[in-house]
Computed example of a mutant assay.
Amino acid sequence: MSRSCEGRVVAVTGGGRGLGRAHALAFASEGARVVVNDLGVGLDGLPGADSPAARVADEIRAAGGEAVAHAGDIATSEGAASLIRTALETYGRLDTLVNNAGFLRDRMLVNLDEDDWDAVLRVHLKGHFLPLKHAAAHWRTEAKAGRTPVARIVNTSSGAGLLGSVGQGNYSAAKAGIVGLTLVAAAELRRYGVQVNAIAPAARTRMTERTFAEAMAAPDGGFDAMAPENVAPLVVWLGSAASAGVTGRVFEAEGGRITVMEGWRAGPTVDKGARWGVAELDEAVRGLLAGSDVPGPVYGSQT
């Protein structure tokens, strides 16, 4: 291993299983001391019977690394603050925050209950905002005291947030919101030595193994493209000092493929120089669309 994170302290939310576990183990293998956060809930966000964060922390320590478990609810202000406090009280610093926690409550829009909408937006979007806010407040204080950090935040979006996904209106909206949050945080926090990026991973986890079971099944032999461990190296690099100068970007990661995602930007335009009439717009707008790129298909759609 390159030990690219030697001396760094990294907090990983949702670090008890799947992608989060892979990230935590990968950071530890590169020399980081890791705060493993996981509330220990089921796929639907309801309380579970075990402590996956403690298991992963034990796994890191058994391999010779340093880790501590944190079981707080990072979608509450106190839980998010205690995550940052745990890093500072245990290791005396925080260098990287990986926002990864989440769960699913999939429904078609006409069947989607308000509670299921709120729950998914809460854990994904609010669960990104609050740890980010508390970590950023600490780093701002450090910067103002003349100790400008080499700080990193890695957020977790999804292809569903970039293109949409049928049956996942709540999840897609939350993941799209995370992209917007990433862009704003990158712009606001740059002055304090904080870089903020996001990934849109594709991997076999509890949230994907049922919906995409056949496509994401592990092969009998050869490269397992859907293993969550494939995504972790990019997250480690983004969370390390080596990624200097990279901020406000979104990367899609799947198997051995990494793609820089390019978001909304101005396409074809027309300016009349005066107010449009409704009847005029049919020809004008259709002309603009004819000269524009066709959006990628929504996941799960028929076209």
Rank of each mutant, 00 (worst) to 15 (best):
V9N: 09
A200I: 00
G239Q: 11
A145P: 00
E283D: 13
G222T: 13
V270D: 07
N37M: 10
Y91D: 03
F27Q: 03
A151D: 10
L281V: 11
L181N: 07
L289Y: 04
F129V: 02
A244G: 08
G239M: 08
K272R: 12
D73Y: 02
R107P: 01
E229W: 10
A284M: 05
G267I: 10
L181Q: 13
M207Y: 08
H128F: 12
M108H: 11
A174R: 11
A160R: 03
E66Y: 06
G300W: 13
R17A: 07
E142F: 01
G239I: 04
A28R: 14
D115A: 15
G20Q: 12
G222Y: 04
T182C: 08
Q195N: 12
A176G: 15
V294D: 11
G65I: 14
V154H: 12
S29Y: 12
V231C: 13
A119Y: 08
R140K: 15
N37R: 03
E254L: 14
T211W: 02
D95G: 06
D220C: 04
G193C: 07
P52V: 01
G221K: 09
V231E: 02
R107T: 00
V9L: 09
A57F: 05
D115S: 15
A227L: 10
G248T: 08
S172Q: 01
V41A: 05
H70L: 04
G31T: 04
H23T: 05
A284F: 05
E30N: 11
V110P: 01
P295M: 10
E78L: 05
E30F: 12
G169H: 05
G40T: 08
M207C: 10
A200D: 01
A11N: 00
L163M: 12
V41H: 05
E254D: 11
D50I: 09
G180L: 12
R55M: 02
A54K: 07
N37V: 00
S301C: 13
V35E: 02
G169M: 14
S243H: 00
G65A: 12
R191M: 10
V150P: 00
S240I: 10
P233M: 10
S301Q: 06
G161H: 06
V10E: 04
R21T: 04
